[in-house]
Design a binder for these strands. Structure first.
Length: 365
DNA sequence: AACCCGGGGTC
DNA sequence: GACCCAGGGTT
């Protein structure tokens, strides 16, 4: 039974697998990088980031030698920035403690920052031919349907059960191909909506397919509602046509990225008052708030924001990094060297579309 | 176990 | 809009 599953799946995989960049290498480093980028991120999104990243850091030594700003600039827009910081930190560990070689056993490789159960199993099976079964969103979907598992996939108990099934199915020969095959099936055939069961090599033994339950398996309990915040930021321009940007602390959300200073609107406060309060708290300056530059919406995984950006001019004080982060005055040509989160990046794009020679004329225009 | 962490594609 | 994505870290 287990033999049939892996045999039919591998046959299908060798005929139908996509030609992906990380499938053209045996390098544990390159496979590791791909697996970190692929966490919670689609293949098509990852590919250009992967190519640029490896071009910049061809070996683990190059990555270990890089500075964090370089790494985050290449990660800009990919999200979950702690992945980039952790990968960088782990590369230093590989160089300093493992002589530049990615560890090839489970307990050691999971000591590296950013490598959990999934990534450990993926790298060990794909790069080192070790028999460790991966369990990701694809595997969960394929196996819950195949075995007709109707329990809530949010629960740890269900995930353990799925891990046990996967451990039982994975063959001694070609464990890396097997893992990739299950994920490939989940990504291209056994999809969340409208799965292509007529193309599936496992449909004849699939409980969900036979019972017409592919729309209800896997079951996931409802997510809780997410809040919506109003964020107001200041575009502070000095006499040299430079904008003030602030570096977020490493341990914060979006840590290591830059932003326009500002913060969350409190109830009973106007957006203008929010800007003035936040800039006084963060920078120790008083500002005049002029016209609004842009307003945009952005969705994170756990909340939504509307970002309001206002032109500001300092009336009292010199900006100091009171909340601990570094501050920098940058021209519009220098600003692009810094990594920003998406919402801020969108603002910067809008700034570029206007005149980049004189920012001050936008104030009160 | 619960919660936090981005951004993008799909339906 | 809701859901999902080659998950991991922290508490």
């Amino acid at each position: 039974m287990a033999y049939s599953f892996s045999q039919q799946l591998l046959d299908w995989y060798y005929k139908n697998k996509r030609d992906l960049p990380w499938r053209q290498t045996d390098s544990p480093y390159e496979i590791w990088v791909s697996e970190i980028m692929l966490q919670q991120t689609r293949v098509e999104t990852v590919i250009p980031y992967y190519e640029r990243f490896l071009a910049a850091f061809p070996t683990v030594y190059d990555l270990a030698d890089a500075n964090q700003q370089q790494v985050l600039k290449l990660w800009e827009g990919l999200g979950y920035y702690s992945r980039g910081r952790n990968l960088h930190q782990a590369a230093k560990m590989v160089v300093d403690h493992f002589e530049g070689s990615i560890p090839s056993d489970y307990n050691t490789i999971t000591e590296l920052k950013g490598i959990g159960p999934y990534t450990a199993a993926a790298v060990l099976s794909i790069a080192f031919d070790k028999k460790h079964a991966v369990v990701d969103g694809n595997v969960i979907r394929v196996l819950t349907r195949y075995y007709g598992i109707e329990e809530d996939i949010r629960s740890g108990k269900t995930k353990k059960k799925i891990q046990t099934f996967a451990d039982d199915l994975i063959p001694f020969d070609k464990p890396g191909d097997f893992n990739q095959a299950v994920m490939e099936l989940g990504a291209t055939v056994c999809t969340p909506k409208n799965p292509l069961c007529n193309q599936c090599p496992l449909s004849s033994d699939c409980v969900a397919y036979q019972a017409v339950k592919t729309e209800t398996i896997p079951y996931k309990s409802p997510a809780k509602k997410i809040p919506h915040h109003q964020i107001a930021v200041g575009l502070i321009v000095n006499q040299q046509n430079e904008l003030l940007i602030a570096l977020r602390p490493n341990d914060a959300m979006l840590g290591g990225l830059w932003e326009f200073p500002g913060g969350k609107k409190e109830s009973g406060e106007s957006l203008t008052q929010t800007v003035q309060r936040e800039l006084e708290e963060e920078l120790g300056v008083k500002v005049d708030v002029f016209n609004k530059f842009k307003e945009l919406k952005h969705a994170y995984s756990h909340f939504k924001i509307t970002l309001h950006a206002y032109w500001c001019v300092i009336t009292t004080g010199n900006p100091k990094p009171i909340s601990g982060q570094e501050l920098r005055w940058v021209s519009l040509s220098e600003i692009d060297q810094h990594p920003f989160p998406k919402a801020n990046k969108t603002l910067i794009e809008e700034l570029h579309q206007m005149d980049n020679s004189d920012l001050t004329r936008f104030v009160n225009s």
